[in-house]
Write a protein that binds this DNA or RNA. Structure first.
Lengths: 235, 235
DNA sequence: TGCATTCCTTGACGTGCATCAAGTCCGGTA
DNA sequence: TACCGGACTTGATGCACGTCAAGGAATGCA
């Protein structure tokens, strides 16, 4: 039996997609994985490339973003240890729709799509979880698409509202929400640029919806936030 | 054994999602379905509503679109007989992200999500097909999101390029492509309005990329189309 | 032939946003 | 303390696009 790095096995074990898989098949998956270490800044997957493998982050963080022909970029997500990189691209067998870049030095375990399918064929609980996960992603992306119909302040309001459900903490002065990234990254995630994001924050501040304190936002009027965002968040 | 309308059974049998399922389980699925006839214009599913069931169109066509708070709408797709309505919403168990409206008189077979999961648990080929389908949808939506970073002429170019791969026919004067819907519908599908779409067509015409002849477009310079669209189409 | 309806195009105008260009506010370092 | 660089803000400008409004152009019907 081949040696498997314990951190690799643990990262694969922790991955949501096959969280209900038996230890035995996870072990087999880990044996089939190709493990690679990459320095900060390395391009782990390029958009347009055939998606044959799906990556699990073992150590570090990776940023998923799309680069347009004119050089502008749009951030999708930042993936940490135990999470998977563009699983949908690998499972669909099409091409990567985005770039993946190491934002810290990373270790990635690459799993070939046919191994993933072998696992799924064997354990129907896993198949169900994967289906539910992908379906959620579809719903989320759908509401992202419709979100682009509204202006930046509304998209920001929606983001803050959803984020407050996750990490908001009540304080006497209001709901405190940490945005968890730099404002430049947030701007990119909302499909805009830092200047416009700054103006959107200023506007919400002037309407006394919130106060900005560095990377944390003090929401004074959650109702206004929900009203402005007026979208349907998932589950 | 309960009576099953033959057209209902056939529509369910034709559905891509379980195309490799055995006749036996499809039969059971059909038995569990709730069949309803609705007049043209009826709202079949409302955005925000809990997605407990997935619909199969048996007769007619249904339009899937998102309505924003300000009244503007965005078309996602038009679903015909044998295709499913918002399957991802039902499988994820979240809320419908869009409205579904009957664009002709329709017959819909509604299947509860737990029936769909029962089928999936039983036939692993079906599970795999569903996963691949959903994963494709994720990739497609991802490139839809990134598409919103480009302007309307580019989005139109990308649409025409992809469409030409499906229905384009070569003629002496160029590649003839039928857009397959009214220009108002196309505008909505591209996330814009008819006026702007019209100007986008005019611009491509002025750059001698194409000629417009009603609902069919004569592409004179496919390369320019691909260059302008410069996206990655799926599989 | 005339009329109505639907679909599409063109023009004029206002606005939201990206871009470029200065600042301002920090934390780190010597 | 002084200095520096990155993160953020603010202002000025131009452009793409949505909106309102006014025509065509094609089709169906009497």
């Amino acid at each position: 039996m081949t040696y498997i790095r314990p951190d690799v096995l643990e990262a694969i074990r922790r991955c949501r997609l096959w969280r209900r898989a038996s230890d035995e098949v996870v072990q087999r998956l880990a044996e089939s994985a190709t493990v690679r270490d990459e320095p900060r800044g390395a391009l782990l997957a390029a958009q347009g490339e055939a998606a044959e493998r799906l990556g699990i982050v073992v150590v570090g963080k990776a940023r998923v973003y799309h680069a347009a022909a004119d050089g502008r970029t749009m951030a999708f997500e930042t993936v940490s240890a135990g999470e998977s990189l563009l699983p949908a691209a690998a499972l669909s067998g099409s091409r990567y729709p985005a770039n993946v870049e190491a934002s810290t030095p990373v270790t990635i375990a690459w799993i070939h799509r046919k191994e993933a399918f072998a696992l799924i064929a064997q354990e129907s609980d896993v198949a169900r979880d994967v289906i539910v996960d992908l379906a959620h992603k579809v719903v989320e992306l759908t509401s992202m698409v419709t979100g682009f119909a509204s202006d930046v302040p509304s998209r920001l309001a929606r983001f803050l509202f959803n984020r407050s459900l996750e990490v908001g903490t009540a304080t006497p002065a209001g709901l405190s929400v940490d945005i968890g990234m730099t404002k430049a990254e947030l701007a990119s995630a909302l499909g805009t640029v830092p200047e416009t994001l700054s103006r959107a924050f200023a506007r919400l501040r002037d309407d006394s919806v919130l106060e900005v304190r560095g990377r944390t936002v003090l929401v004074k009027d959650v109702g206004a936030l929900a009203r402005l965002g007026s979208g349907y968040e998932e589950s």
